[in-house]
Design a protein around this nucleic acid. Structure first.
Lengths: 338, 338
DNA sequence: GTGAAAGCGCTAACAT
DNA sequence: ATGTTAGCGCTTTCAC
């Protein structure tokens, strides 16, 4: 086997046809077996043998060009880092699409926005696009529709008019965390707000937390923390000097929850007795540490599955309801830390 | 603006030409400005206006079909979960490729293997493929080469003959961790081996750890743990009953390091005095907890950048050296925990 | 059951 | 400086 050089020209269906001694249409029939195609078992076998022999892979661009559509669902890589969630979500989505014989392609470009981004996506002529609502400007949607994209789904904080959206509001995560703490009798509550790559996400959660606190007439203390150990320590030391320090803290995410718990213990405070701590994201480790971490979970499963379901409906030419927004609600998974 | 329906037919360059009152080749010249193309400023403007007006996005399939190559580098989603690393690596790679005007597409399919997988990748007629060496069987490489893929890069544990490989051996991670602990005077060492999704990764690290221990004539104790809190607790309780319990543990990854530290403290042991703990992956939180987590880091940066560099060489038709394997070495980032 | 031929949207010679 | 034209590889009528 010679693996040292790339073929100048990939084998085409014509090459396969020639080798098998049939016409190109027969090759196509064998490979795609469309409704009315009838090929003798013997011919089919000859064709498949030739395919194997040549290492033939039909050109997706050519098929897509000819047939006018593809089996590709495009998922532009989210602008914001999603951490663990990204992999989970991709897996769920791939699995759901696989059942429909669709394939998921992730477009890795965190720079392009709006219509420019849409043009790049549209160029691939995907069957469907599943993008953050923040990136789906009206112009972007227009470009996609014009390019013949059959289905557009949005996900994110904002409901997109005219595009089915999985609403996924991190403000809600903040709100339910605070309501949970208030429900447990806490009146002096702090909320960590991270700097760095998670700043935008953290800001949303803070906003929701603040809203919930205001609603209950409780003052929520905002504590900005960098991704630096000293920051965390300063915060706890500061609390130690107060006469009425917070009794609970919403850490904004599970990593910060871990960090603040670690810092609290370092300073001799116990969780949850001296300080209740609630994280967010419900990462796997929440169940595995002492104390177990109370955390706000989002049902991401709904998103992947929901998008796939909507696609099914669309493929079956069912009416496509633009009102079909679905709201992904966060819930507090109560464990020991708060 | 009517956003309610997908266009039956996307606008083509012919539509643009008609609207601008020019020929299709002129449209092509304006959009691609190839070396010898000369278009008057006025014509160019008319064409661009028509493009905007129609929301025209050139069809990538058609271009690729015609020109015989694309600007797509394909990165099949790794078979094994990579956690945080995945996002980091994708970002580094995208950034490196962007400078070459190449775009990264991630093929999300964790099922197909060998030649089957390669056929799916080859169908897209990418410029390059960057895949785990475990998936690049000889058959797979052959299919890709035949399909005219210009560059194939492997990454992973095994060096692939005939394909430049970023060697990234998790056995080395285990080995350096153990050597570090031995160097610190530890003689009774345990190694956690996780079950669940990280089992394969964990097995590699265990293997390397075992090898390093054998080399030093030290017995390494293998401790299999599920993703269950009780398992961790059992382990520590067991150690407490021993007369000569381990003095150090390689936790296999940072999450498990966190967990075991948490369990140790719960049982009244202090880290690193009663027990040294070393993690792996060097996740951001290693620097942010008490005690700071000693962890094994891989220079993933090398991988993304290295692949991009190799691509550059290739694009510039520099000789393509198959000996150009690069080994990504792990190193121990020493902090407080061990 | 199989083959011939048209055409999807685009680019790049070649003409003008 | 712009237009004409010939395919790229494939699917799909329509004949046979």
């Amino acid at each position: 086997m010679n693996m040292s050089e790339s073929a100048a020209k990939p084998p085409t269906s014509a090459d396969v046809a020639r080798l098998a001694g049939v016409s190109r249409s027969t090759v196509s029939y064998v490979l795609n077996s469309p409704p009315g195609a009838r090929v003798s078992a013997e011919t089919r076998e000859r064709v498949l043998k030739a395919v194997r022999e040549l290492g033939y892979a039909p050109s997706a661009p050519a098929r897509s060009l000819r047939s006018g559509n593809s089996d590709v669902v495009l998922f532009p890589l989210p602008l914001q880092p999603m951490g663990q969630l990204l992999e989970t979500f991709i897996d769920e989505l791939t699995e759901a699409l696989r059942r429909q014989e669709l394939s998921l392609l992730i477009h890795a470009d965190r720079y392009a926005r709006g219509a420019d981004a849409a043009r790049a996506w549209a160029a691939l002529r995907p069957l469907a696009v599943l993008a953050e609502s923040a990136r789906l400007t009206d112009g972007a949607v227009q470009v996609l529709r014009r390019a013949g994209v059959r289905a557009i789904f949005a996900w994110g904080r904002e409901e997109h008019p005219g595009v089915p959206t999985a609403i996924f509001d991190n403000r809600d995560s903040g709100a339910v965390a605070i309501r949970h703490l208030i429900g447990n009798g806490h009146r002096r509550i702090a909320c960590l707000v991270p700097a760095g790559p998670l700043a935008a996400l953290g800001a949303d959660r803070w906003e929701g937390a603040k809203g919930a606190a205001d609603e209950a007439g409780i003052q929520l203390r905002r504590v900005d923390v960098g991704y630096v150990r000293e920051d965390i320590l300063q915060v706890v030391r500061g609390w130690q000097r107060e006469t009425d320090p917070p009794t609970a803290v919403f850490a904004n995410n599970d990593d910060f929850a871990l960090m603040i718990i670690s810092a609290l213990r370092e300073c001799g405070w116990s969780v949850p007795d001296d300080m209740a701590v609630v994280g967010a994201d419900d990462l796997p480790f929440c169940d595995l540490v002492w104390p177990r971490l109370t955390s706000v979970a989002m049902h991401t499963r709904t998103m992947g599955g929901g998008a796939a379901d909507a696609l099914t409906a669309l493929m079956e030419n069912k009416p496509y309801k633009h009102r079909d927004h679905m709201v992904v609600h966060p819930r507090v998974v109560v464990r020991e830390s708060g």
